[in-house]
Simulated scan of single mutants.
Amino acid sequence: MAETTGEAHGAVDAAHGDGGGLVFHPMDQFIVEPLFGDGAVNMLTVTNVTLWMAIAVLCIMALMVLGTSGRGIVPGRVQSVAELAYGFVYKMVEDVSGKDGVKYFPYIMTLFMFIVFSNFLGLIPMAFTTTSHFAVTVVLALAVFIGVTALGFVKHGVKFLELFWVTSAPLALRPVLAVIELISYFVRPVSHSIRLAGNLMAGHAVIKVFAGFAALAAVSPISILAITAMYGLEVLVAFIQAYVFTILTCVYLKDALHPHH
């Protein structure tokens, strides 16, 4: 089968096969590649993933450190965005986790900013969406899971296990509910990570498929409209998924601080 590389968004390989159909490769955009050389990728290899993660960190520093260095009484646009993000996450932590959860605000703020910047940077043409990789989102989710679990045992000891014992249920049902609660607790990092990576991966893949069809003159106008609509939706998803990941972190933190049903 002969293959030709499509140019729309860099992206989709389209070729006429023996059956005359189009073959797309929308998942090629998620391939991890080394920045230097053609060797195998390992833990110490500098890749496109590490590059865009570093860019996300630099952007956060530019916004939160350089953007607020002036500390003007009348804030400029950059300082206003930084203050808005700070207030948004602070109120989320306070409302969901309570006053005693505010001491963990710096970590949650860092988590939110990293995810939201990674999501939005991934929308730049030819960029790499680091949060579309399970290797990234699983680490973030496990850090939250292990952190809140350790915090629960440190603060409450064995009483933290009361989180799984539903005292409001009839006594006969409590052991069954305890098993269900225990399973759902250990599923948290799985759903936490898959939700973020899956939504971003799916949206970017759909855009690349529409970009491939844009090469066909007959459907090109429809494809361009679809790409525009999907891109607008992905902008919304980029923020919503960062918000969902962060608010779930606050919920898990609340369970660690207040494990009673």
Rank of each mutant, 00 (worst) to 15 (best):
L44A: 14
G147D: 02
T137D: 13
F120M: 08
V116F: 05
V139F: 06
L84P: 00
G6N: 08
G212W: 01
L182S: 14
V219Y: 02
V93K: 04
A127R: 05
A14G: 02
A215K: 10
P34K: 12
L121P: 00
I207E: 04
A211S: 09
S97E: 06
A169C: 06
E162R: 07
Y90F: 15
A11E: 00
V136F: 00
A2G: 04
E83W: 06
V206L: 15
T68E: 08
M27F: 09
A11Q: 01
T110D: 11
A141P: 01
A256K: 08
M201I: 07
Q241H: 04
H261L: 10
K99M: 09
I108A: 01
N119V: 04
V176C: 03
N119K: 05
V41Q: 10
V49L: 14
H204T: 02
G17P: 01
F24G: 10
E162L: 06
V209Q: 07
N119R: 03
A215Q: 12
P170G: 02
V166S: 12
V187H: 06
T129N: 15
L121A: 02
F114S: 11
F245R: 03
E181F: 04
F153H: 12
D28F: 01
L233N: 09
Q79A: 15
T228I: 12
S168R: 13
P75D: 09
T47V: 10
S97T: 03
G19C: 10
A135F: 06
L173G: 00
V187A: 13
A11W: 01
M53G: 15
G76S: 09
A62Y: 09
R188W: 03
F210M: 15
I124F: 02
P26V: 05
A202N: 12
Y231H: 09
I146H: 04
S168I: 06
V244A: 09
L171H: 07
M27N: 11
A15R: 07
A238I: 00
V96T: 08
H261C: 08
V89H: 01
G10Q: 14
F145E: 01
T130M: 06
L161I: 06
K99N: 12
K103Q: 12
H258Q: 12
A150W: 07
Q79T: 04
A141V: 06
R71C: 05
L142V: 08
L35D: 12
V96A: 05
A211W: 02
V237H: 03
A8G: 01
Y90L: 15
M201R: 14
P75Y: 01
E3Q: 05
G19K: 14
L182V: 14
Q29P: 00
G101S: 08
L22F: 11
M230G: 00
H9L: 15
G232Y: 01
V139K: 12
M109R: 09
L142C: 04
G21P: 02
P26E: 06
M113Q: 07
F245N: 04
W165K: 10
M1F: 01
Y231V: 12
A2F: 05
G76M: 08
H25P: 00
V144A: 05
E83F: 02
K91A: 15
Q29C: 04
F213Q: 04
